[in-house]
Design a protein around this nucleic acid. Sequence first.
DNA 1: TAAGATAAGTGGTTAACAGTGGGTTAAAAT
DNA 2: ATTTTAACCCACTGTTAACCACTTATCTTA
Lengths: 152, 152
Amino acid sequence: MSSQYTFTGEFTFSIDSKNRINIPATLRKQFLSRDKKTFVVTRGIDQCAWIYPMSEWEIIQKELKELSSLSKTNRIFLRNHLRHANIIKFDNQGRFVLPQSLVDYSTIKKDVTIIGVLNKIEIWNPHLLKKVDQSDEVDEQSYEELSERVNI
Amino acid sequence: MSSQYTFTGEFTFSIDSKNRINIPATLRKQFLSRDKKTFVVTRGIDQCAWIYPMSEWEIIQKELKELSSLSKTNRIFLRNHLRHANIIKFDNQGRFVLPQSLVDYSTIKKDVTIIGVLNKIEIWNPHLLKKVDQSDEVDEQSYEELSERVNI
DNA sequence: TAAGATAAGTGGTTAACAGTGGGTTAAAAT
DNA sequence: ATTTTAACCCACTGTTAACCACTTATCTTA
């Protein structure tokens, strides 16, 4: 089964003293009624937080179950992604509380950058995102190859 | 699936104090009813903004969905292509609001040049376009390569 | 070709809504 | 029982988008 969501766009919001973050209305309105404003926040592979609408998370969980625990990489991956998964709902104003552990992990202070990435939403420390952006961590060649496969 | 649109022509319009830009009627009338006046504005590879009718964007989106986020290159590629994509509708007068980030990126001041380029529409700062035009940025060789693939 | 009619481009106003902050009560933990 | 935490409610403010109005251009028809 494939993804039902196609989040896009970038937003600059702020986190308040109670660790509340507002989900941009444009993204929030895309939540299907069957997800009832419920989603999962977890560690991203990069230094950010990932948000999956509940039904998306269920798809991923199913895929994760297929992974053999015999492989060390798989074990680490499963551990890192499942133990930090929190089931969350947003309040009447459209906000949710980002768990302290994820605030720490993504080194979020006052401002946050929120990015829609198809089936998930990413929460970033703006400064960190900028740094990752600028650093040439991706080797150019594989990027080129990719852009040839995907027809933009 | 291949493109349904063939935009052509060049137009000089203006952007107002609220970042509103009018889509030329000639281009607007080509929008298919199923796209319901909805489109995606995003960063062009050159220093301009790109507009894709929704159904065109969906073709791209479908390709992007094939990319797994386990690959680092994929993650960065996806982020960079999706974060600047804004889903937009035009108002009853046929205008749309160009997000500030794209106004900045394409250094648009007062006048804009709008160009139809097959399946997308490009929004340019006229002065910048002129400069790019005059400078022979395209090296002859890649033109040669292109001529072998495309039969003009 | 001129005049009226229709459509296109541009500008401003307003009312709804999104984002943010704080306070109060209920629940949980110590 | 007391302290801490989290959910809920209310309230303020700035932005946005829907609406209205005017001018200029284009098309049509006499």
